[in-house]
Amino acid sequence: MSERRFASLTLLPGAAWLVLLFLVPLGITLAISFGVTDELGNALYAWHPENYDRVFDPLFAPVLLRSVGYAAATVALCLLIGYPVAYYIARFGGRYKYLLVALVVLPFLVNYLIRVYAWTAILSDEGLVNGVLEDLGLTSDGVRFLNTPWAVIGGLTYGYLAFMILPIYAALDRMNPSLIEAGKDLYATGWQTFRHVTWPATFQGVLAGSVLVFLPAVGDFVSAQLLGGPDTYMVGNLIQQQFFDANNFPFGAALTTVLMAFLLIFMVFYLRSAGRAAAEARA
């Protein structure tokens, strides 16, 4: 067997996996998105593109905008929190580097749903955070954290923070530490060195982290469902409701398809940028 032939054989399990668990469901979703429901609420294959008209009903515009807004805020917060953490681990982690990386990943061993659910206990009016605030005399009747947009964004940030930290850490770890010294050597202050040297050198990591956080955050429904209030409905909740409560699989599938198409635009933008950077790095 030629090496080339063998190489393509090794791709087979992965390819089969992708086709079976990604492309097939994707095809079904697409097919159902044009379907209808019968009298009993079962989805039937049909040609009913009107499902898509409903997706673009102005009624849902605020939901889509809110989702994008929350996801963007999540990306910003993850970046704000994640960059210093990654920076610390990569530059000053020393022999504890891998331990610290493991600690960042550790919460992922626990189901996301359970972790967010635990936050409802932590953020309750009589929960842990308010308990501490009360002990410190900062509040007497509890700050209302739960059921606010901030709680939702906080939950998303908590949920996806590691997706930001890891690629930035990788970029910082790859970066030649002499570059930072070169910046300082050339009269740049700490901040200027970060802005003109470290940030550009790790920008691909930031971009990768932002995409990895933004994509799941924009379609998330767990955080809004468990931590949100009456006005924090996200597109993920909307889709989930169509499948679970409204039993309207076709509309849910149409929403899913549009959301995926929207996210695909982001992916393409990202892949092109990353591809360009990789091509430049090879040159």
Binding site: N42, L113, V222, Q225, F243, F249
Partner: peptide, 17 residues
């Protein structure tokens, strides 16, 4: 915690129609 119903959702999808 019907949010936990992802698996069921998948099953529902494949059976749909």
């Amino acid at each position: 915690l019907k949010v936990g119903g992802g698996v069921a959702l998948g099953a529902g999808l494949s059976a749909c129609g």
